[in-house]
């Protein structure tokens, strides 16, 4: 039987397969950081946890972290704040530090020049499982080498655009005898993207 001669090749192929598996297992590194929560949970948590205001901040149970860079930090920072630049929050030393804070039940309060700046750091820590991360709702600015910290209201409702436009038209019309009608804005037709029903994959399906 000729077939049997080929079994040598089969054995070689089998050994190569095993080697490949072993190499893949050896080359595999467990990722350093793993998300503790999925995006849906994260979304729920961030909606439920608004930034804290400066007067609610209790220095006994919380640690302030300045996520701006070192230069800005040295120019002026809130008292007792620790400087961890937002690009360094996943460093080993900082991870250990955050873990310890979590174990001590202390909350981590981040601030930057404005609340938006601290979002990236806080949300990533949040998704890694540090549910004790908060953002301090403050604006920081330097005035003559002194840090001015002012509390801000996040997502503050500004002036109503439509009313402003109407008011401006009214004002102009009052001044003139000729009534000028506002020019309608040419609007591109609203985009409606058809909702494609996507195949629902069971949780097994990777990413």
């Amino acid at each position: 039987m000729k077939e049997l001669e080929k079994t040598k090749n089969i054995s070689i192929a089998a050994v190569i397969t095993i080697l490949l598996v072993i190499i893949a297992l050896l080359a595999y590194k467990k990722p350093k950081h793993l998300y503790a929560i999925n995006t849906k949970q994260a979304l729920k948590q961030i909606v439920e946890n608004p930034p804290i205001q400066l007067n609610n901040y209790n220095p006994k149970t919380a640690i302030l972290i300045d996520i701006r860079n070192q230069y800005e930090y040295e120019k002026g920072h809130i008292e007792n704040a620790i400087n961890i630049h937002s690009s360094d929050i996943l460093d080993d030393a900082n991870s250990i530090f955050f873990k310890k804070l979590k174990e001590d039940n202390k909350s981590i309060v981040l601030y930057g020049n404005e609340p938006s700046e601290a979002i990236s750091a806080s949300m990533i820590l949040h998704q890694l499982g540090y549910s004790n991360v908060k953002i301090l709702a403050v604006n920081n600015s330097l005035n003559q080498d002194k840090l001015i910290t002012t509390p801000v209201e996040i997502e503050k409702k500004g002036e109503n655009i439509n009313q402003f436009i109407k008011a401006s038209i009214k004002k102009v019309n009052e001044l003139s005898d000729v009534q000028i009608k506002p020019k309608p804005i040419k609007v591109i037709p609203k985009k409606v993207i058809p909702i494609k029903k996507k195949k629902k994959m069971p949780t097994e399906g990777g990413c």
Binding site: A24, Y28, G206
Partner: peptide, 20 residues
């Protein structure tokens, strides 16, 4: 059999995602 075993190992190790 070999392909499915291999795929799921690669999926496990993060080299490929079976769902995609």
């Amino acid at each position: 059999v070999v392909a499915s075993i291999g795929l799921y190992y690669m999926d496990y190790l993060g080299y490929i995602s079976v769902g995609e």
